[in-house]
Simulated assay, not measured.
Amino acid sequence: MPQRLLVIEDEPTLARLLSYNLTQEGYDVTVEDHGTAGYERASGESFDLILLDLMLPGMNGIDILSKLRAQGIVTPIIILTAKNAEEEVVQGLKSGADDYITKPFGVSELLARVSAVMRRVSGKNEEIIPTTQSSASTISLGQLEIFPEKYEVTLGGISINLRPKEFEVLLYLARKPGVVLTRDDLMNEVWGFDYIGGQRTVDVHVSSLRKKLELDPDSVHIDSIRGVGYKLVVNKKKSTPHLI
């Protein structure tokens, strides 16, 4: 059965281009040209991926994205943004987008990004895990506990709601506490070697994580290493990292 894609795009020529090329690649494509109709379709039916324009009549793309994520819908979403619209990209990523494409874009770029996201979702990109650790192990760092198998995190016994990519960034940092990881490390581990988006994606997810870890910053926090990347810092006076 072909994978189902939903395209929410109100510009007729672009919508036809997207539909034609994705259909040629073997996807089952549904197109909506109105924000409200697109949201209703996305929330009422099951899709493998959504291509979402941000400037739409009825309901804009950010509102659609936010409402879908608030409902617990985790369908991967690639947003379509205008050239030089960095604020839109940041806002979209913060709202739960998995990737973005800047208009105008070529067909090859579109297909590469869609294919990369679909591979990650279908599990064809195997997660790199140290052989000494099991993906099912609970990781305890200070007051932070991470449950990889459940995609759940608690801090001081309080559950923290993380989006999937936020969770994966935190998990990778937590497996190497105190070690400086470059943006490229994080991009390759969390988004995959074939991801062709910018490093801004990493910065946005780390920024969002920091805000959610403010519940107990004295126990664990993320440090920036200028020009290099990030590391997870644990206050050892409060607790010693261990695996359960």
Rank of each mutant, 00 (worst) to 15 (best):
Q3C: 01
R4W: 00
L5I: 13
I8N: 05
E9Y: 01
E11T: 11
P12R: 04
A15E: 04
R16M: 09
N21Y: 09
L22Y: 10
Q24L: 15
G26A: 11
D28F: 14
D28G: 07
H34L: 01
H34V: 00
S43A: 13
S46R: 15
F47Q: 02
F47M: 04
F47H: 12
D48M: 03
D53I: 03
D53H: 09
M55N: 05
G58C: 04
M59K: 14
G61D: 07
L65K: 10
K67F: 01
L68M: 10
Q71I: 00
V74R: 14
V74M: 12
P76I: 04
I77F: 06
I78V: 12
T81I: 01
A82L: 04
A82I: 00
K83I: 02
A85C: 03
E87W: 10
E87S: 15
E88I: 00
V89S: 05
V90Y: 03
Q91F: 07
Q91T: 15
L93P: 13
S95P: 08
D98V: 00
I101W: 00
S108L: 05
L110W: 01
R113L: 00
V114S: 09
A116G: 07
A116N: 08
V117T: 11
R120V: 04
S122L: 09
K124R: 10
E127G: 03
I128N: 09
S135D: 07
S137Y: 04
I139Y: 10
I139K: 13
L144T: 05
L144D: 10
I146G: 08
I146Y: 06
E149S: 14
E149A: 15
K150E: 11
E152I: 02
V153I: 13
V153C: 05
T154F: 04
L155A: 06
I158E: 07
S159E: 07
R163S: 06
E168A: 14
L170T: 05
R175Y: 02
R175I: 01
K176M: 08
K176D: 06
G178R: 06
V180D: 14
V180F: 08
L186N: 11
G192K: 05
G192H: 15
F193C: 01
G197F: 07
G197K: 13
R200I: 04
V202K: 13
V202G: 10
D203Q: 12
V204E: 08
V206L: 01
V206I: 15
L209T: 10
L215K: 11
P217T: 00
P217V: 00
D218H: 07
D218R: 02
V220A: 05
V220P: 14
V220Q: 11
H221C: 03
I222W: 02
I222C: 01
D223R: 03
D223I: 02
D223F: 03
S224W: 02
I225S: 03
G227M: 09
V228W: 08
V228A: 08
G229M: 06
G229C: 07
L232A: 02
V233P: 14
N235M: 11
K236S: 02
S239P: 11
S239A: 15
T240V: 11
L243T: 10
